[in-house]
Design a protein around this nucleic acid. Structure first.
Lengths: 205, 205
DNA sequence: TGCCCCTAGTGGTCTGACCACTTATAATCC
DNA sequence: GGATTATAAGTGGTCAGACCACTAGGGGCA
């Protein structure tokens, strides 16, 4: 385990953990060696090991529970996207970019949902639209949350949620109230050719 | 700066750094406070600060140079990709999400670029396509980097780059070689109605 | 048998120390 | 005075040791 001089220690730890996981065929939920044990095995300080573990934890690759140990998590890049977004959004990005991207996702999600909606989903959509307890913004969130879920693309859902979250403070650019009904109506009639048009009308209104 | 008991210290550091960046309008390349300074300012140990910084470094959000300091990076998690990818492997639904989202952005970018391309851009596209030094993957990256740039939606560009980074290691689902030429051809003829069709043909081939 | 307490092990955090490296300053030399 | 060279200060990289808070399991007690 000789280290290349200019290589940082925690990179080595990362690599070793990766090897350990694969060699022992660890599955999500399985336990990893303790920090002290890892440090001794790899011949480096505990703090260096911790730096690597913290990084992996932030990315959702591992989970740590105080008093218990370190466990392999079920890694998905979504957490990574989320962290990156929190540093990127609001800094480099303009309001316009966020809104445009949000609408783009909504439009595409509407098309992706084609053929994946059952009758009970349609009913659910109508219920959301007519729920008078919700203000327009909440209605919008409920509506597209359901729609995004139906696309079965979890990543897209996460990105959309991030856009919504970061646009909370300034974005009131929702759609006209009848838009949602019209969209549901198109699903009901199974007339999918007009979905794009429906969105376009909203985007340039 | 009182901390909620069950909240780990480095999460606080993460948040503070994020605020610092936004408050001071730091751009990539700008310098952050030193580790010791951060530790004192935030009232916590240097090791906790380091754990947060290492995580951010792994994500490419910051860069550290020994003897110089810590600098804001350009959000490109290059160093990370191989490590992360090795954890993604085997999770097919996640891979599918990444690929689908990537292609979705490419399709929409192609439509967003309508009306924003000048003659010199067209020439540039053709140059990229016919550059024999590039392998197909590099050509694809160059092609859509330029296209995404032309959409003038920086956020969309960043998301796309992230998808590309992740999918680099496992995704060979590019488009047929004549696809790129056909797309440029449509721009040349200013025949935009067929862009969607062109992509759809690729997606289901 | 069932309960409780204690202990060993674990992650969470801090401190202080030393190293290697970079930069800016000061001293030196011509 | 100007150029070169030593020096000092500052920075990230790493380690060791010490506590703390928490968890789980075992041993003892009723």
């Amino acid at each position: 385990m000789s280290r290349i001089p200019n290589q940082k220690a925690y990179h080595g730890v990362l690599e070793q953990i990766r090897i350990f996981i694969h060699k022992n065929l660890l599955k999500p939920g399985d336990k990893l060696p303790s920090e002290r044990e890892l440090a001794e095995t790899l011949g480096m300080g505990r703090s260096s090991v911790r730096e690597a573990l913290r990084a992996l934890e932030l990315l959702g690759i591992i989970e740590t529970r105080k008093g218990e140990g370190t466990f392999l998590g079920s890694y998905r890049p979504f957490q990574t996207v989320e962290i990156l977004a929190s540093f990127i959004l609001g800094n480099n990005s303009t309001k316009d970019d966020i809104i445009a991207t949000r609408k783009l996702i909504e439009k595409e999600a509407a098309k992706l949902a084609i053929g994946k909606l059952e009758d009970k989903d349609i009913i659910q959509f109508k219920k959301i639209i007519h729920d008078l307890n919700n203000n327009p913004k909440q209605m919008h969130i409920d509506f597209f949350s359901l729609l995004l879920n139906k696309t079965e693309n979890e990543l897209l859902l996460i990105i959309w949620q991030l856009m919504m979250e970061f646009s909370q403070t300034f974005d009131n650019e929702l759609y006209e109230s009848q838009f949602y009904q019209q969209l549901v109506h198109l699903y009901t009639k199974e007339d999918y050719s007009l979905i794009e048009n429906l969105f376009m009308k909203q985007l340039f209104s």
